[in-house]
Design a protein around this nucleic acid. Structure first.
Length: 413
RNA sequence: CGGGGUGUGGCCUAGCUGGCUAAGGCGCACGGUUUGGGACCGUGAGAUCCCGGGUUCGAAUCCCGGCACCCCGACCA
């Protein structure tokens, strides 16, 4: 992409209505625009990051046989009444609306009911199971208080996966598998070493569930963990009962506390939804059986925000290569003819490049480049050409190197 | 939802104990000079001072009501 065509502009000053680092950096860099508290538009650069994160998730989920689909945001109340979740006293963060004729609708804050209902059309025999399916979908949650920039929003993209399994045991097998899949996803995104599989309250379906918590100052949770022994417990659930249930002798561990953000969660749903909505299958002996389910969420913008919180310096963002909006930021200082060729050659190699072809001062280009935080920066200028080529610098390094124009593409490819 | 804070051109701010044409910086347009770390000079455009009501000769400024945003807390499959 040519930067002259990028309509967003970087902003020098912090926006006055943001306090959190993620929102400040993402706003200043032109990644997001705040429509209202907890509701953000993804601008071209921001959307590229979102899509990178989605693609990593997609690849890992597809690898375990999950199929992508997309449900609707508008929901009729009928299915929700069957599970008791239409009631505002039970679920207090509904956004509800009405059809012209007065029919009540809800904007989905999750999709267990809708999906389970759909599956009634496709599942009747044990031969039809298991089913693993997921979507990237906008969730609406009428939070009392949106906060921390993109970390807690009222409208956000969520990856939610659901498993429909033959038995509790089969479901649990998949559940265990997903722990590894999530670990892999967060590793690829670049936050793996700060992300912990965390023991947490299980809610109504099982005594415990697991969250993926990433150490991060802006987070809302407090993680109690032992890095060496790789164990973490949400502080809310750090008590004798947990120690007993997980066979933990507190003296053997060196627990410390730090703030963290929940980037993913995996839940056992048991047969609550399948039962309530009448989703069953006929087993080999023809007997009707319950289906066991789980749900597995990842808040995509939240992951983006957490990455922004972790990877930055005083000059701006430093995206990990895996989720960066572009791999290379090509900066031309009055050498647009030569730069154009490099730009084309890089693109031919399939390397994503943002090419700063604008006619502005060098300092402004460097400042923008640092703020936007693309991993590799190539500068082509009279000076670099005199030294023998182009200057290549990594965003997170101080030093740069001069490389022959023909070799830089090979090096990055 | 309780408490605290803030709302002034596209962005960041000053002005707020009432008083002249609402000031500055960034950005934007035009002209010129610049060209390796957000350049400089000049000219110019751009404002329902969050909204509604009130007090007053006169309101960005004072009073009342509302809305929005930020923070703390509560809440949070």
């Amino acid at each position: 992409m040519k930067q002259s065509q990028l309509f967003t502009k970087t902003i020098k000053e912090d926006p006055k209505d943001e306090t959190s680092l993620n929102a400040k950096l993402l706003t200043r860099g032109g990644f997001v625009y705040k429509e209202m508290a907890g509701v953000y538009t993804f601008l071209p650069l921001g959307l590229r990051v979102i899509e990178k994160i989605k693609q990593i998730i997609r690849e890992e989920l597809n690898a375990v046989g999950a199929l992508e689909m997309k449900l609707t945001s508008l929901q009729q109340k009928e299915n929700w009444e069957k599970t008791g979740r239409w009631d505002d006293k039970v679920v207090d963060d509904w956004f509800k609306t009405k059809l012209k004729n007065g029919t009540e609708l809800g904007l989905a804050f999750t999709h267990e009911e809708a999906l389970t209902n759909i599956m009634k059309n496709f599942v009747s025999s044990y031969k039809d199971l298991p089913i693993y399916t997921y979507q990237f979908q906008t969730k609406f949650r009428n939070e009392l208080r949106a906060k921390s920039g993109l970390l807690r929003g009222r409208e956000f993209i969520m990856k939610d996966l659901y498993d429909f399994s033959l038995t509790k045991e089969k479901h649990e097998e998949f559940y265990e598998k997903m722990k590894g899949v999530y670990k892999k996803i967060f590793n690829r995104i670049g936050i793996g070493d700060k992300t912990y599989l965390t023991i947490s309250n299980g809610g109504t379906f099982s005594k415990y569930s697991f969250e993926f918590q990433t150490l991060c100052e802006a987070g809302e949770d407090i993680l109690v963990f032992d890095k060496k022994k790789n164990i973490a417990i949400n502080k809310d659930d750090f008590n004798d009962e947990v120690f007993k249930d997980f066979n933990i002798n507190k003296k053997d561990y060196n627990f410390i506390e730090k703030k963290s953000a929940e980037v993913g969660d995996i839940y056992n749903l048991g047969d609550k939804y399948s039962k309530a909505l009448g989703l069953t299958y006929a087993d080999k002996d023809g007997k009707e059986k319950s289906i066991f389910m789980g749900s597995y969420g990842i808040g995509v913008p939240r992951v983006m925000a957490v990455v922004a919180e972790i990877y930055n310096d005083k000059n701006g963002l430093i995206w990990p290569e895996s989720v960066a909006p572009f791999k290379v930021h090509l900066i031309s200082l009055n050498q647009n003819k030569k730069a154009e060729k490099i730009y084309n050659d890089l693109q031919k190699q399939g390397i994503e490049v943002l090419y700063d072809d604008r006619d502005i001062a060098p300092g402004a280009k460097f400042a923008d480049s640092d703020l936007i935080g693309i991993p590799y920066r190539i500068v082509i200028s009279e000076r670099s050409l005199k030294s023998g080529g182009v200057e290549l610098k990594k965003r997170d390094k101080e030093k740069s190197e001069i490389i022959d124009v023909r070799k830089v593409i090979k090096k990055l490819g």
